[in-house]
């Protein structure tokens, strides 16, 4: 029974660690499918985490935090859009700029406003998104396996977790079953053709970038006021880039994106669980190796060793109407 409990714990922590990746990965999906590469996911998550932590601490409400997080992230997304869509700037350079600005701004504002060396104040429980107990979870807790799965793995997460998973089919539906989604993908694959058909390429790309900003806002908010009780300096710690890796790994598809994020979340959870414990036959597994696995897998995929990842055709190229 003890090993079952351990497995349940690892899986529950997998879900918690997956959420920021999943939000950010879906965010990148909208943006990149429309032809706007975004390596600034990390930065947008970071400012969102800061804004959410600060607003929740000052306004004493997680919802206010969410609003601030999403708002700030959208503002940064629009900055990226302004640079690369309106002014046809380089998308990679703009992404680097967003990341560095986010890093400096969140830490500087944090230390000036709160005087805690870049952190936001510790949040009280009522200022956070707390774990919810799903109906009947306690009642079935005693049932072996199925009851455990329900009560220990599926139940006991914050509302944002369920929202993240709901976003996966929703994103699939929006991208592949609506006119908006068709147009969004069209401007990412062949903007000139979409333009000829009367679709505003820049308008669609702005819409996609805003979707990206909203979801990055959720990712950052989750980090600072659901997973932890406040913002701390550079708390995203590369999660935005793992999300980017997951996006490539999922070949720019929503449902595979979820599996990729779950895989990377699982590796993270296992790495935390195994820290310092010796495995039979293998010995102590180096934590750093486990941390590097998502990146190594992604490079292997890009190299064509595990299938082929084809990015949206017009990705990274600014659209110029007259030639």
């Amino acid at each position: 029974m003890e090993s079952l409990d351990t497995i349940a714990q690892v899986l529950a922590s997998t879900i918690r660690l997956t959420i920021p990746l999943l939000f950010a990965c879906l965010a990148g999906l909208y943006s990149e499918r429309s032809g706007v590469f975004d390596i600034g996911l990390e930065g947008k998550m970071l400012v969102a985490a800061f804004a959410a932590g600060a607003a929740a601490a000052v306004g004493h409400s997680p919802w206010l935090g969410l609003l601030a997080g999403v708002g700030t992230s959208v503002a940064f997304a629009l900055l990226h859009g302004f640079a690369v869509i309106t002014h046809r700037g380089d998308q990679i350079v703009s992404g680097v700029a967003v990341n560095i600005i986010a890093l400096g701004l969140s830490a500087q504002l944090g230390s000036t406003w709160f005087g805690l060396g870049g952190q936001t104040p510790q949040l009280q429980p009522e200022e956070r998104f707390l774990p919810l107990t799903l109906p009947g979870a306690d009642a079935v807790a005693g049932v072996p396996v199925l009851g455990q799965i329900y009560s220990q793995i599926l139940s006991g997460h914050s509302i944002l977790v369920y929202f993240a998973f709901a976003m996966v089919p929703l994103t699939w539906w929006v991208l592949f079953r609506t006119r908006f989604g068709l147009r969004l993908r069209a401007v990412g694959e062949n903007p000139a053709a979409a333009d000829t058909a009367g679709v505003s390429v820049n308008g669609m790309r702005y819409a996609a970038v805003v979707c990206c900003g909203v979801l990055c806002g959720f990712a950052g908010t989750y980090l600072s006021i659901a997973q932890s009780a406040g913002f701390s300096r550079s708390m995203t710690a590369g999660k935005g880039f793992i999300a980017l890796a997951a996006l490539v790994f999922a070949k720019w598809q929503p449902v595979p994106a979820m599996w990729a994020c779950l895989l990377f979340g699982f590796l993270d959870a296992v790495a935390i669980r195994l820290q310092g414990t010796a495995l039979p036959a293998v010995g102590i597994l180096p934590v750093q190796l486990m941390q590097a696995v998502p990146y190594i897998l992604t490079v292997a995929l890009l190299a064509g060793f595990i299938g082929r990842a084809t990015p949206p055709k017009a990705g990274g190229v600014p659209y110029v109407k007259e030639r």
Binding site: S94, V96, V98, I100, I101, L103, A107, Q108
Partner: peptide, 20 residues
């Protein structure tokens, strides 16, 4: 961190927004 912010802004203005 202020210096980091200034660096980011320089990258934004001199790099991404150079056509503005």
């Amino acid at each position: 961190d202020m210096v980091v912010l200034v660096q980011g802004l320089v990258i934004l203005m001199a790099g991404a927004l150079e056509h503005m």
